[in-house]
Design a protein around this nucleic acid. Structure first.
Length: 127
DNA sequence: CGGCTGACTGCGA
DNA sequence: TTCGCAGCCAGCC
């Protein structure tokens, strides 16, 4: 696929949701996240592992940061290993992430998602 | 060009 | 068991 193109970083991509990510890594992250079924959540670590564990979990969060605002990338379904909404502060409002999850019938334990019920592991094959 | 930071994780003390 | 630290890679001073 189109690997990282010098001079064309995803950060440079304008807020045009119809535009695809040119970065292979970012594109894969979107692909995985978009594959998370409603009512389920995944973790940065699992997504990173689905990408071949080549990239650390932090890079997944970085990609999601760039994906913020895209309606085709349900970033709210991505939580950390403990199920905590570590990325909630990056949403429009700190409570928006939880609101979206609760709207999908996702159970919470305090401020963390009940991973035992809702954890979804991406297929390692394609991504 | 060097160093710091970050939507994280795993291991060692 | 809990706390702290290093590793991970890209973007931004």
């Amino acid at each position: 696929m189109a690997t990282n193109r010098p001079g064309l970083k995803f950060k440079d991509v304008p807020a045009n949701e119809s535009m695809q990510a040119d970065s292979d890594f970012y594109h894969r992250v979107y692909n995985v996240v978009a594959s998370i079924p409603s009512g389920k959540v995944s973790t940065y670590g699992h997504i990173g592992a689905a990408l071949g564990a080549k990239s650390s979990a932090r890079m997944v969060g970085w990609a999601l940061n760039a994906a913020a605002g895209r309606n085709d990338v349900p970033a709210h379904r991505v939580v950390n290993r403990m199920g905590a909404l570590s990325g909630a502060t990056h949403f429009a409002t700190p409570t928006l992430m939880r609101e979206l999850l609760e709207a999908e019938n996702i159970a919470f334990i305090d401020d963390a998602v009940d991973l035992d019920k809702h954890l979804w592991v991406p297929p390692i094959d394609e991504f």
